[in-house]
Amino acid sequence: WKVTVKGVEYTFDNPEEAKKFAEELAKKKGGQIHYKDGEFQVH
């Protein structure tokens, strides 16, 4: 499971962890999460 933040990729074994990480980042940066092709992208 991948989380991509401004072109930087983070990989997680667990989808729950990936989702949590993406949500935290989106909150911090005031961005939005897009889920696409099996990965979370924070913009």
Rank of each mutant, 00 (worst) to 15 (best):
Glu39Pro: 02
Ala26Pro: 01
Val8Arg: 10
Glu23Trp: 06
Val8Glu: 12
Lys27Arg: 12
Asn14Tyr: 06
Ile33Ser: 04
Phe12Ile: 00
Phe12Pro: 00
Tyr10Ser: 01
Gln41Phe: 10
Ala22Val: 07
Tyr10Lys: 02
Gly30Ile: 04
Ala26Ser: 07
His34Arg: 09
His34Ile: 14
Glu23Thr: 08
Lys28Arg: 12
Lys36Tyr: 13
Asn14His: 07
Lys6Phe: 14
Tyr35Ile: 10
Ala18Trp: 03
Asp13Ser: 11
Lys20Ala: 12
Trp1Asn: 09
Asn14Lys: 06
Asp37Ala: 01
Ala22Met: 07
His34Asp: 12
Trp1Leu: 08
Phe21Leu: 02
Glu9Met: 09
His34Ala: 07
Glu24Gly: 08
Asn14Trp: 03
Ile33Lys: 02
Leu25Met: 13
Val42Ser: 04
Lys2Thr: 09
Glu24Lys: 08
Lys27Pro: 02
Val42Asp: 05
Trp1Phe: 11
Glu17Cys: 09
His34Cys: 13
Gly31Arg: 03
Gly31Met: 14
Lys28Met: 13
Phe21Tyr: 04
Ala18Asn: 00
Ala18Pro: 00
His34Phe: 12
Glu16Ser: 10
Lys20Arg: 12
Gly30Gln: 07
Ala22His: 02
Val42Glu: 04
Glu24Cys: 15
Trp1Cys: 14
Tyr35Asn: 07
Gly31Gln: 06
Lys36Trp: 11
Lys2Val: 11
Thr11Ser: 11
His43Leu: 14
Gly38Leu: 06
Lys6Ala: 15
Phe40Trp: 14
His34Lys: 08
Pro15Asp: 02
Val8Gln: 12
Val5Ile: 14
Asn14Glu: 04
Phe12Tyr: 01
His43Ser: 13
Lys20Gly: 04
Trp1Tyr: 11
Gly38Ala: 04
Gly31Tyr: 11
Phe40Cys: 07
Gly7Lys: 01
Ala18Ile: 01
Thr11Gln: 12
Lys27Tyr: 09
Phe40Tyr: 11
Gly31Ser: 08
Asp13Phe: 06
Phe40Asn: 03
Ala18Leu: 04
His43Thr: 14
Asn14Gln: 04
His43Met: 12
Thr11Lys: 12
Phe12Thr: 00
Phe40His: 03
Glu9Thr: 14
Lys19Trp: 13
Asp37Ile: 01
Gly38Thr: 04
Lys29His: 15
Thr4Asn: 05
Tyr35Phe: 12
Gly7Asn: 08
Thr11His: 15
Ala26His: 04
Glu17Asp: 13
Thr4Gln: 03
Pro15Tyr: 15
Val42Cys: 03
Val42Met: 04
Ile33Leu: 10
Tyr10Val: 02
Trp1Val: 11
Gln32Phe: 14
His43Asp: 13
Ala22Leu: 07
Phe21Ala: 01
Lys20Glu: 10
Phe12Gln: 00
Phe21Trp: 06
His43Gln: 11
Lys27Asp: 09
Tyr35Gly: 07
Glu9Cys: 13
Lys20Ile: 11
Leu25Arg: 02
Val42Arg: 02
Trp1Gly: 05
Leu25Asp: 02
Glu39Phe: 06
Ile33Asp: 06
Pro15Met: 15
Lys29Trp: 15
Phe21Lys: 01
Tyr10Arg: 01
Gly31Leu: 12
Thr11Ile: 15
His34Thr: 12
Gly7Asp: 09
Lys6Tyr: 15
Glu17Tyr: 03
Asn14Ile: 02
Tyr35Pro: 05
Lys2His: 08
Pro15His: 15
Asp37Thr: 01
Gly30Ser: 06
Val5Arg: 01
Lys2Phe: 08
Trp1Thr: 11
Tyr10Gly: 00
Asp37Met: 00
Val8Gly: 05
Tyr35Glu: 11
Tyr35Leu: 09
Glu17Gly: 05
Glu16Lys: 09
Gln41Val: 13
Glu9Ser: 13
